[in-house]
Design a binder for these strands. Structure first.
Lengths: 207, 207
DNA sequence: CCGCTTATAAGGCAAGTGTCCAATAAGCGG
DNA sequence: CCGCTTATTGGACACTTGCCTTATAAGCGG
């Protein structure tokens, strides 16, 4: 394959800052998960997608599996940071804060097929793998706490339903609609998902 | 490995009726998906699990991928048949029918890690693969129809919420709790899931 | 402008996979 | 009890994967 005249000049990617290259690989992993599913998401394929040689993966991560785990952690972190950032400034008007939370959950950025597809892979890993389960658990706690903070400020007290139950139900609605939206964004478009969330919140937190 | 004395006597599985062997392979596929995840669920591994040689897969299915699809179809069919069977006899007492439906959805048989784990793989395939999407869509229609039949008979009319929305919400609650239960059956045990479903139904279908 | 660090590339290797194929035996109809 | 169908096996092949190792060049500090 080497051209005849030259002594095997290697085309080499521009040397990038370690942090950049790392996050390139993390992003490529999410993209791979969505495009090719868990089965097609191999270390080599991720590197192909990221435009680097397969040897480089090992330079930044212990192994492909570890890359997957770190991708999960990164995704959780980014998502929570975003959700918390969106809702917190409006905590004075709880209705508005909750609304913005719903919008964020179904935003292009966080409810894209890419993200949700990857998310499902992680859910599944969480069932059989200790380390993935730990990440999932931590995420759940933080997300639950955020939701609790949001609804605990609602002006209308919930009627005859323990707070815990109400939060669990709202959380379930969010997850369920998330999947529904994932499976077909035409059948259940974003606006409808958000409207349904609002409706659920009204039913759960008003007398 | 062959014992010295005999002329390579092949240990061969008892010849089984095609239908039995087929369903063996389908069952082994579900088990594999749960135990090893989508990445570990290879044609050869499925055959190992089913106790047959790897060559046999091709005798019954076009390829491993096709086996996966047929497993999905089978699972949908079985689940719907079961749910319909559980709810229908009690259609006279709509409350009771709905209750039994909830119980069935979270029964050991249909909410086992095996089943839900497999289900997530299928959900994911449905996003990127036409044929899986078709199966998913058909399942959704039938399940939605069943749910509609159940709630449309409820004595108390729903208050200020379009029927479609109420069904969509109830369906989302079911899916969301299903996942929650899957992720940790200790954190959200079955009894709680069912109770939450009942609570949701009360909130959605009573004044 | 040189030299050192290290990011990057690429090859080798064992293991596993999907596909195809030929050989074998199980069990039925005659 | 024999012979035919076919369920079942196991091997061959090309290919991919993950892991490790060596070679190379990019770009910084001096």
């Amino acid at each position: 394959m080497a051209s005849a005249g030259e002594p095997t000049r290697l085309r080499r990617a521009r040397r990038a800052s370690p942090l950049v290259r790392r996050s390139d690989l993390l992003a490529a992993t999410v993209s791979c998960l969505a495009r090719l599913g868990p089965r097609g998401t191999t270390g080599r394929e991720i590197c192909r997608q990221a435009g680097v040689s397969h040897g480089l993966l090992r330079h930044y991560f212990r192994n492909p599996d570890n890359l997957l785990l770190e991708t999960y952690e990164q995704l959780c972190e980014d998502m929570l940071a975003h959700l918390e950032g969106v809702a917190s400034p409006f905590i004075d008007d709880p209705r508005d804060a909750l609304h913005r939370y719903f919008v964020a959950v179904f935003s292009d950025e966080w409810a894209s097929p890419e993200i949700i597809g990857a998310w499902m892979v992680f859910w599944q890993q969480a069932r059989s793998r200790e380390d993935f389960a730990a990440v999932s658990h931590a995420f759940n706690l933080r997300q639950r706490a955020l939701l609790e903070r949001l609804v605990s400020r609602l002006p209308v007290p919930l009627a005859g339903l323990p707070m815990d139950d109400a939060i669990a139900l709202l959380s379930a609605v969010l997850d369920g609609l998330w999947i529904e939206y994932y499976l077909s964004d035409t059948r259940t478009p974003r606006a409808r998902c958000i409207a349904l969330c609002e409706a659920a919140a009204r039913r759960l937190f008003a007398a």
